[in-house]
Design a binder for these strands. Sequence first.
DNA 1: GTCTATAAAGCGATAGAC
DNA 2: GTCTATCGCTTTATAGAC
Lengths: 206, 206
Amino acid sequence: MLKAKPRLDRDARREAILDVAQEVFLEEGFAAASMSTIAARLGGSKGTLYNYFASKDELFKAYVERRCLWQQDEVFAVISGETPEEALLRIARSFLTHVLSEITLRNFAVIAAESERTPELGRILYETGPKQGAERLAAFLAGLDAAGALELDGDPLGASQHLLGLLQSPLMKARLLNAIPPITPTQVDSEAARGVRTFLRAFGRR
Amino acid sequence: MLKAKPRLDRDARREAILDVAQEVFLEEGFAAASMSTIAARLGGSKGTLYNYFASKDELFKAYVERRCLWQQDEVFAVISGETPEEALLRIARSFLTHVLSEITLRNFAVIAAESERTPELGRILYETGPKQGAERLAAFLAGLDAAGALELDGDPLGASQHLLGLLQSPLMKARLLNAIPPITPTQVDSEAARGVRTFLRAFGRR
DNA sequence: GTCTATAAAGCGATAGAC
DNA sequence: GTCTATCGCTTTATAGAC
């Protein structure tokens, strides 16, 4: 018997640790979260934690990377036969639902706060999140432009960024500062419609 | 001699403490900042600190309130005889310069992170910052609408929120996450022009 | 590989001399 | 009012039993 418990599932254990770490980081932020809290909620001990991650920093990095992988394909799911306005409305609602969800907002705030100390974390989140989202939306808008439904004047990325700005404008900051209660689906619908309407006034074919 | 050193300048000392506290809070965030660090950089002692502010929380609140007072009248300075587009461009540049400055961004990130624990802080910042700004801009836009320069369809606040969203869209998140270098005046001009152009396409008189 | 126990350092806050 | 010294507590990180 060389190894009594060889390793039932080291990867699963690692995932479980990241699940708990995500909870605690989102609840308390990076600085306030303690390895003791994470270990206690895990049911394990701090020794175990340090076995999987060399330090609190390494644990935090691993958590950010995993979240970025997750949210990559949440917004742009499938695009079937719809009118341009219907498609824009559906994407707008899906985007707002995701971006104003409590977990996404909290994640953003925590990483923004920590990105001063560790810019790498912020870069990872920005490039796999907002940046990629704007580029994918730009590609979709370019298609509508080519089909004659929009007038983008040759700058689909600019129009994409402006649509995203219109959608987030009043609610994003308010929610990031916890100045208003969580967003309801009704509010999402209303803001999506409002944003798309202004977008079409600016970029729709006259 | 009832009071030997009656009080040379208690208020000035309080201001000096808040100056140092602002530095440390912006550099390290709320949780990581320590009263010892603040006292040391002040040149005084922790005892002095606790003489002026009952707790770390009270010190933080006082700092937030002071910052909110400061930035109230920075953006909407004076509005003289300009064309509507010139006025919008000037306000847009002034707004972007303020909102994308390193100190404003860092302040926003720190308070957003802390507002989960203490929503009152976030509420104070939101209501005296973005909310008031949108309302003042709405009042200005309503004037342009009444003068026949814009077509706001009876919702000046909605148009104001959308203009602010257009201006901040691509750069705000990137800077909050420290994913791009500090904004240059050239970038501010370019984004302001881009945002105002889209805004006028949507709300300008046809 | 996982646990208990503990070391070493730092925290917010207080007490008391001056 | 301001300082020095220190209390009580919590933190990260490690050592050693199993």
